[in-house]
Design a protein around this nucleic acid. Structure first.
Lengths: 234, 234
DNA sequence: TCCAGAAACGTTGTCGACAAAAAAAATACA
DNA sequence: TGTATTTTTTTTGTCGACAACGTTTCTGGA
């Protein structure tokens, strides 16, 4: 289990250890390779990465700052649970950010932004066609993150990135249950969004951004209600 | 200078050191007691607080996570500069959050929320009457933070708190230049907001929240343009 | 005098070790 | 057998020390 990290005990550049651990743990958490609620052991991580506990600890503090792990004082630290009760609030914020970032991108984007966005859309399309759920989720987040960057508002962009990160876990849960059959509808919606941004049509960007967000919300909502409808013998 | 921290070398509860340093440094940064761009020395802080560098470091990592300090690798860490070029983006986000949180508070608040909000408003009024700019800025942020909490959306609340924190520094700059003469107009606007929330009037809450935000933006904008208008001999 | 290289200094990143705190296990007692 | 108390174990929080890196100062040569 620890063998997928070969050669990590070799000498690394000074200061690169924290980023390494942070990035890897973050990905593992967001891709649900580390289950929500599972415990995190510092010494185990230290031996796994071949370094002391200090840089591990710093990475954990950073992750805790993003809310990805929770650390009870003097007790074990664990991967944060997904807050299902807070999902309406989450989706509310997500849709609003979809709208706002897409609007701003339509207003402030430059030519080079569109190229980057199109690259992400191409990767997203490839992931959908390959039925690779993990890649599809990651490239989708990157696509919208690029749109937010084109909107030239770092506050929205940072907040949106955080929401998208949290969303990666829920989406993973969602597609796991659908056995990686991915609806290609997202690809078309993305194209609509790109067209609206390119045309600098703020109204259309807002409308498509909202529709895209609400469509995702609706799909996940459908999944949840379906899961709730278990047969109960009376 | 270090004598306003008496008895800090005495034994503290295990695990309380980080929070102590974090809270104090955060306040000093937000109140501009630590100037933006000024360097932060770990060993100096360690001796000042009578503890090792390790908990200091953890507090600094947390502050860096919030963007309050910047740390260049292998070089000195410093208090983050205020991003004046990003101010339009900041105010855009701030006004939107004013609107959204006030709307949601009008929808979802409970009776006990209003009590808390009114308490903060009382403290804010007292600070304005006492012409205490620092207290006024802090209580104003607490007032709006309480409204966001009443809106029952933790994502908006966290984002809003972050914006308000960053705003404390700009507001401090603003009132410094006006020599602590505080416009009492804010008090009335707060009362309007409270009334709209209590009446559960979403439309009015949105309108007052937006007006409140834009009024602040306008005031700060006036300050900046005034400062820009220096006489230049030709 | 000016500049290049070397040495000295200060600061950060990392390490191993130890003590406090909680959890788990073991023991005593009814 | 069940429960309360003590002991052991595990894990975290903190510490002092050291090495790496950047900066500054010093020195030598043209």
């Amino acid at each position: 289990m620890a063998d997928n990290d070969p050669g990590l005990t070799l000498e690394r550049k000074r200061g690169s250890g924290v980023k390494l651990v942070y990035d890897l743990l973050r990905d593992e958490i967001l891709d649900l390779k580390l289950a929500p609620g599972s415990a995190i052991d510092e010494v185990q991580l230290a031996s796994r990465f071949g370094m002391s506990r200090t840089p591990i600890r710093e990475a954990l503090v950073r992750l805790a700052g993003e809310g990805l792990i929770e650390t009870l004082p003097n007790r074990s630290t664990m991967v944060s649970n997904i807050d299902f009760l807070g999902m309406p609030a989450y989706f509310d914020a997500l849709v609003l950010m979809y709208r706002v970032t897409t609007r701003l991108a339509a207003q402030h984007h430059r030519a080079e932004d569109l190229e980057i966005i199109r690259e992400h859309q191409a990767e997203f399309t490839a992931a959908v066609e390959a039925q690779d759920a993990l890649a599809m989720i990651a490239t989708n987040a990157a696509f919208h993150s690029a749109i937010a960057a084109a909107g030239r508002n770092s506050y929205y962009a940072a907040f949106f990135d955080r929401l998208l990160g949290e969303g990666r876990r829920m989406l993973r849960l969602y597609y796991q249950s659908y056995e990686d059959r991915l609806p290609p509808r997202f690809v078309d919606e993305h194209e609509e969004i790109i067209a609206a941004i390119e045309a600098r049509d703020v109204t259309a960007a807002d409308r498509f951004g909202k529709a895209h967000g609400e469509q995702i919300v609706e799909q996940i909502g459908r999944l949840l209600t379906r899961n709730d409808r278990v047969d109960i013998d009376l």
